[in-house]
């Protein structure tokens, strides 16, 4: 076998989405110009997303994790085409949508919807719940006659565990958890295949988080949904995901199946990230080696040379300062971008 064939075989093993992925992202870049002065002269570039590739299999939950500035939310917005793409390719349901006009995107948007973090800021306070949930249907001209529209809204409310007699209330009459249910019902109105969920439970109280996590997993099973899940809470990510990609300053450093990643993280940043998360068990914590990573995430405006992680990495070698490691498949099916494993 040639080298590329080996690499491809390894990718296939790593990648349950290799056959007919719902979403395929190839070498995605989102760069922002940094301008200065009256003439808006460009003096630099922020590489918010800098060469990110991944695939989503139908029905799976794929999570993007990482700390602030890693580019996980920008990646999500770019996938939805709510953010201009600088380079790369986005294939959704087999169609290259990277350069679709707004008009051509419109029918495709029905199939990819977003669930937002803040259930307080994302719902119009002056609209009744029925209008909020039914609005996407109206916008896309799918509302049908009055009776059918109302029936669909009732159906959506029941789907997410809201009582139909709440339809005429306003968002302020609902708790955080119920508002997130309203947001999810709205995102399901157009029968999407992909839900992009940006921190969907992080604004909720602990006892309410579990309700919404369970709802999302139940909806996925019943409706065959695919989730692109963005979160910083690694315990929630581990609970809900099939596969996880770890991002650092605009690049993916490791992609693996959930258990592979959490049981044996390989990239030094993944290791550091997992070690930093405290486990809710004092016995385990007391016996855990607490190696705390030094330093903070550097600014995206001026990232370190070579591997962006090298200034904080305990294994950094001279090569890491000059050469950016490519994301390559390994024997155990995961992909890692690290010179240690070359």
């Amino acid at each position: 076998m040639s080298e590329s064939a080996v690499a491809q075989a390894a990718t296939a093993a790593a990648d349950p989405a290799a056959g007919d992925p719902l979403l395929q992202v190839d070498d995605l870049k989102v760069h922002f110009p940094v301008t200065e002065g009256l003439l808006k002269r460009q003096v630099g570039t922020i590489k918010a997303v800098d060469g990110v590739s991944f695939k989503l299999a139908r029905g799976e939950t794929f999570s993007l994790v990482g700390e602030s500035g890693c580019g996980k939310s920008t990646t999500a917005l770019a996938v939805l085409r709510m953010q201009t793409v600088t380079a790369g390719r986005i294939l959704f349901e087999g169609v290259d949508v990277t350069h679709h006009s707004a008009a051509r995107m419109r029918p495709i948007r029905r199939r990819m919807q977003m669930v937002y973090q803040d259930p307080f800021g994302s719902l119009n306070p002056r609209m009744k719940v029925s209008a909020i949930i039914g609005e996407p249907l109206v916008i896309h001209g799918l509302a049908g006659d009055r009776e059918a529209h109302r029936a669909r809204i009732r159906e959506l409310m029941a789907l997410v565990g809201l009582l139909p007699d709440m339809a005429d209330r306003y968002p302020h009459e609902f708790s955080g958890g119920q508002r997130q249910r309203i947001g999810i019902a709205r995102s399901l109105a157009l029968d999407p295949s992909l839900l992009v969920c940006d921190e969907p439970v992080s604004a909720l109280d602990v006892s309410i988080q579990a309700q919404v996590v369970n709802l999302m997993m139940d909806l996925q099973r019943r409706l065959g949904l695919t989730y692109l899940f963005i979160a910083h809470d690694l315990s929630v990510v581990r609970h809900i995901s099939n596969r996880v990609a770890v991002m650092y300053l605009g690049r993916i450093v490791e992609i693996a199946d959930r258990d592979v990643l959490f049981n044996a993280p390989k990239h030094p940043y993944t290791e550091a990230l997992l070690a930093a998360v405290p486990v809710a068990n004092p016995e385990i914590e007391a016996n855990r080696a607490q190696q705390i990573i030094k330093g903070e995430v550097p600014s995206v405006r001026n990232p370190p040379s070579g591997c962006h992680f090298h200034p904080r990495c305990v294994h950094a070698m001279p090569r890491c300062r000059v050469e950016s490691p490519a994301l390559r498949p390994r024997d155990d099916g995961r992909l890692i971008a690290c010179h240690l494993y070359d």
Partner: peptide, 25 residues
């Protein structure tokens, strides 16, 4: 008890429905 059971942890059993506390704070 409900709070402890409803939080997924890095050492808990993934994929299973989480225990929930019904209702609101």
């Amino acid at each position: 008890q409900g709070l402890m059971a409803s939080v997924p942890s890095l050492d808990s059993d993934p994929g299973r429905p989480l225990q929930t506390i019904p209702g609101q704070p």
